[in-house]
Computed example of a mutant assay.
Amino acid sequence: MDGRGLDRSGTIAREGALGRVTEGFVPVVDAARTRIAETFGRARLHSAYLYGSIPRGTATPGVSDLDLLLALHDDPTDADRADADAIEAAIDRAFPQIDGAGILLSSRTALLSDVERHDGGFFVACLCTPLLGPDLAELLPRYRPTSLLARETNGDLARVLPRWRTRAAAATTDTDRRTLGRLVGRRTVRTGFTLVMPRWGGWTSDLDRSAELFGRYYPDRVEQMLLAASAGRAPSPDRAALALLIDDLGPWLAAEYTAVHGEKAPRP
């Protein structure tokens, strides 16, 4: 993999691996694997994946969270969500080295569908590390840093902003605002990076590098994007900082993204 996250063919290299999990997080990953297998079993689970800082080998004890994706044989049900929630809670309680666990649920069919080819499919093939079961990446194409990939991964920020405003208005505690701040910060930086991704010609998931790369093309907004990166790593309960991201940077970024790449295809 080169300095732009590409392999020798010029396609985006898979960024994580189980071998990159640092020693302190190995017991967390082992526990997640065991609990997922015991809870879902082969009849319900097609495959399970890690993503985020832990499989990239950049996780910080006590700060980083454990991120997982489960691809089920069928569409997730309320019972599946309840089981996933129970696994999240159990792992979070057992391991102080993580700041929470999060499990995404999808189906094999959805992740391999045409509409998800450059969103969910890309996520599995390039950003996820196999943990259990057959790897869906073997059924997906190789990806390049194109405008199509930018549009389908993050071309829906305008649709997300109203939900963030509603959550911000309803946030009554510092914990609520920190939780929202981390979500807003990470998503804003990812959107800012993928806005410039085709021009830069590579891929990274590192928040600080993403913000810096964005700033090469939009220097007038780089300070705001660096604030978003900080919120994504260590969110603050500050209302003003959150409002700046949602009500100032967010609308500008959504409009610029649509102008450059277009809007993400609607999902059912």
Rank of each mutant, 00 (worst) to 15 (best):
D2G: 15
G5A: 08
R8Q: 13
S9E: 15
G10L: 12
T11R: 04
A13R: 13
G16I: 01
A17E: 09
L18H: 00
L18T: 05
T22I: 13
V28E: 05
T39D: 02
R44K: 07
A48N: 03
P55L: 06
T58K: 12
T58S: 13
S64K: 03
L66K: 00
L69Y: 01
L70Y: 02
L72E: 05
D74Y: 02
P76F: 06
P76T: 04
D78H: 01
R81A: 14
R81C: 07
A84R: 00
A86S: 11
I87R: 05
A90V: 02
A94E: 15
D99P: 00
R108S: 05
D119L: 12
G120C: 07
F123A: 09
V124E: 09
V124I: 15
L136P: 07
A137K: 04
A137Q: 04
Y143T: 12
T153V: 13
D156F: 13
R159L: 14
P162L: 09
P162R: 10
A169I: 03
A170S: 15
D176M: 05
D176A: 13
G181M: 08
L183A: 14
T188N: 04
T188G: 02
T188I: 14
V189Q: 05
R190N: 08
T191F: 10
F193W: 12
M197S: 05
P198M: 06
R199M: 09
D208S: 09
E212P: 01
G215P: 07
Y218R: 08
Y218K: 01
R221T: 06
E223N: 11
A228M: 02
R233T: 14
D238S: 11
R239G: 10
A240Y: 01
A243S: 15
L244C: 11
I246N: 02
D248E: 15
L249Y: 10
P251H: 04
L253F: 02
L253K: 08
A254S: 07
A255E: 15
Y257A: 05
V260G: 00
H261V: 05
H261Q: 08
G262N: 04
K264A: 13
P266R: 13
P268G: 11
